[in-house]
Every structure is written in structure tokens, then in C-alpha cells.
């Protein structure tokens, strides 16, 4: 019995401690962002890795999501004779939810795991300690560029996802299912507002922060050799995805 409470207490303590450590890391990263010397080279490298290299996978998921949304929406809305609402359905879903969330999940899978693995390997091979001994702040050198890259690149990826999603929906709705193109576009423009898009982009920036921060943290604090690195990567991906979806709910409830 006592054991159970101890375990519970330990879990709670660990959760609180971890949260605190994450937040401290975030503050450190932001603090070092404004502290010279600036390493732009490093930052751009991360931005390329997070943003540009994720483009293909994001375009692929975005377009197919838009297409499947159009198809499902068409089947459902046809019963009410409201096929014209397929356009708004696709565009609103993409802009508000699916664009940011899908981008976030894909980047988590692609870049988040890589980050955790990279930092974890550096940790277990004591490269981070080596940096420390060379008087290079490992948070400033390793974490800050990654967080900046995530916050800046995720919105860009999200807007691309939105666009290809709407394009895919248009292709399926108009070309394959035969909805009037004028009606499709007109209704889309009627229903979607600029705020829908901007709120989606804000979300994706938050998701970018979550992904890079959690992944970096997990890698940074990896321990236990190769196995520990694998664990760090797994937990980075799982935790990032869960946090993305949870925070998505709260962000949505605040914004809309």
C-alpha cells in the first residue's frame, strides 16, 4: 500500500519536475536567443531540416487529406442537396484544424524523432558534456536554433498544407465529382474568413514550439546508452503528438 502511494507520489513528482525542466529549458532557449553571439548558420541549417525537407511529406498528406475530405463531405452533403458546401467544408477544415495539426504530426514524425535521436546520441556519447567543457552553452548551441526553426517553419508548412488541401479538394469535388467550379470557389470564399487562416497559422506556430521543445528536451535528457536514445525518440514523438492534440483543443476553444 505504502509502495503504491510512493509510486504515485514519485510519478507526480516526476511529472512536475519534468514540466518544470521543460519550462526552464524554454526560458533558457529564449533567453539565449537574444544573447550574442548569434549563430545564424546553425539556425538556417535547422530551418532547412525542419521546413524544407518536410515539404514533400507535408504536400503529400495535405493534398490527400483535402481530397478525402471532399469525397466524404460530398457523400454526406449530397443527402441534403448541399454539394456546394463541400468547398467550405474542405477549406474550413484545412485552415482551422487539419492544416496545422497534420503538419505538426508529420513534422513530429520526421523532424522531432530525428532531433531527439541526434541530441540523445550527443548526450550518451558525452558530446554535450564536451561542449560544456569547451565553454559552449549546449542549450544555446543546440536547442535555441531548433525551437526557432520549429516556430518559424511550422506556419509556412501549414499554409502550404492548407493550399494543397484546398487544391486537392477542388480537384476531387469539381473534376471528379462534378460540382460546379464557380459555386465551389464562390461558396468557399463566402464561408472562409481571413481569421480562419490566421488562427490556424498561430496554432501551427505553437505546435512548432511544442515539437521542437519536447524533442530537444527528450534528447537532451536521454540516458542509458543506445536504448536510452531509442526511448527518448519514442517518448519525444508520443509526447509531442499528444501535446499537439491536447493543446489544439484548448487553442481552438480560445480562438473560435
Amino acid at each position: 500500500m505504502r509502495e503504491f502511494f510512493e509510486r504515485l507520489g514519485l510519478m507526480a513528482e516526476k511529472a512536475v519536475v519534468t514540466t518544470g525542466q521543460i519550462i526552464i529549458m524554454l526560458f533558457q532557449a529564449v533567453y539565449y536567443l537574444f544573447l550574442p553571439p548569434f549563430k545564424f548558420r546553425n539556425m538556417f541549417k535547422q530551418m532547412e531540416f525542419v521546413g524544407v525537407r518536410s515539404l514533400f511529406v507535408v504536400v503529400l498528406t495535405g493534398s490527400f487529406t483535402g481530397m478525402v475530405l471532399a469525397m466524404q463531405g460530398y457523400n454526406a452533403l449530397k443527402r441534403f442537396g448541399a454539394e456546394s458546401l463541400v468547398g467550405p467544408t474542405v477549406a474550413l477544415s484545412m485552415a482551422r484544424e487539419l492544416g496545422p495539426v497534420l503538419t505538426g504530426l508529420m513534422v513530429t514524425g520526421r523532424a522531432g524523432s530525428a532531433m531527439a535521436t541526434e541530441l540523445g546520441t550527443m548526450r550518451v556519447t558525452e558530446q554535450i558534456d564536451a561542449l560544456y567543457t569547451m565553454a559552449i552553452n549546449p542549450v544555446k548551441y543546440l536547442v535555441t536554433p531548433r525551437i526557432v526553426a520549429g516556430v518559424l517553419m511550422l506556419p509556412v508548412l501549414a499554409i502550404i498544407t492548407d493550399f494543397v488541401g484546398v487544391l486537392g479538394g477542388y480537384f476531387v469535388g469539381v473534376k471528379l465529382l462534378g460540382i460546379n467550379p464557380g459555386v465551389y470557389i464562390g461558396r468557399t470564399i463566402d464561408f472562409v474568413s481571413v481569421n480562419d487562416i490566421f488562427y490556424g497559422l498561430t496554432k501551427s506556430a505553437v505546435f512548432g514550439l511544442i515539437i521542437t521543445l519536447i524533442s530537444s528536451f527528450q534528447g537532451y535528457h536521454a540516458s542509458g546508452g543506445a536504448e536510452g536514445v531509442g526511448r527518448a525518440a519514442t517518448s519525444a514523438v508520443v509526447l509531442s503528438c499528444v501535446l499537439i492534440l491536447v493543446s489544439d483543443y484548448f487553442l481552438t476553444s480560445i480562438m473560435f
Partner: peptide, 23 residues
Amino acid sequence: AEAKVGIFVLIGIILLAYMSLRV
């Protein structure tokens, strides 16, 4: 890497501007 990121961001901004104006 800088050039790639620049092009990437430019594409994003263009798409954003286009969609915002249309909508």
C-alpha cells in the same frame, strides 16, 4: 541552406497572401 529556407518562406508568404485576398 539559407537560400532553400528563403525560397520556402517566400512560397509560404505568397500562398498566404493569395488565400487571404481571395477569402
